[in-house]
Design a protein around this nucleic acid. Sequence first.
DNA 1: ACCCAGGCGACGA
DNA 2: TCGTCGCATGGG
Length: 264
Amino acid sequence: MKYHIENNEINLAITLDCGQCFRWEQTGENAFSAAVAGCAVTALQLDGGFEITDSADLGERFWRKYFDTELDYDGLITRFSADDTLKNACTAARGIHILKQEPFETLISFIISQNNNIPRIKGIIGRLCEAFGEKVAGGLYAFPSADTLAGLSEAELAPLRAGFRARYIIDAARKISDKTVDFEQINSLPTELAREELKKIVGVGDKVADCTLLFGFHKLNAFPKDVWIKRVVAEYYPGGLPECMRGFEGVAQQYLFEYARGRG
DNA sequence: ACCCAGGCGACGA
DNA sequence: TCGTCGCATGGG
């Protein structure tokens, strides 16, 4: 199906390549593709909006949620601009929306991300999908389900070359599959309690939990502290985060991440 | 060769 | 509770 969604704030190029997702690829000047929720998708950036074509019929509602088109990002940026550092970050990161990705894919992706670099994270995730995911249209592979991964041994993940993270992946898949950690519950829990639930998984600490909550559960007050953000906080916010971030720390974090990582 | 990467768990103080 | 260290792997 094809959907045209109007939104004059989002920039797909930066949104899909700012480190919050690892599977979208740019296929043309304004075109992007990926496997999402078990189907092949292409996204086309237009003036004042974008166009989605999916191989299944996930629905416009799904895609509006996925790309977070309802939140007033311009209003948020105005609010953030009360802080000088954040104002600069907003300029560098304008057009980024926080995606609402599938929780399991997000969890596993950020488990893989620990002590790792982005090109290599993408490589491991790509091999994981190709080895254990269902084939979808366009030569793409869906992200494997928790049930599928729960049935595997650590040794069977060796071809991924995930290193010490292999046992974390297995532990996560098993605890999600048997509901030791329940996504439905996490969804309805406030961020602080949801974080503790996710930390029941071996290899999930504050950082991985917060990334999962921010990018997979759309809990916008989660504030993942990676090495880049720690530098920013130490330099600009030693006394604490500014008031203008309250409730939307995660969005601010992503702008600061983009700003600090300094590709521009 | 070397340092580092969107960290975490184990361990000792 | 806090600092420190090893961990697998490979990109730059």
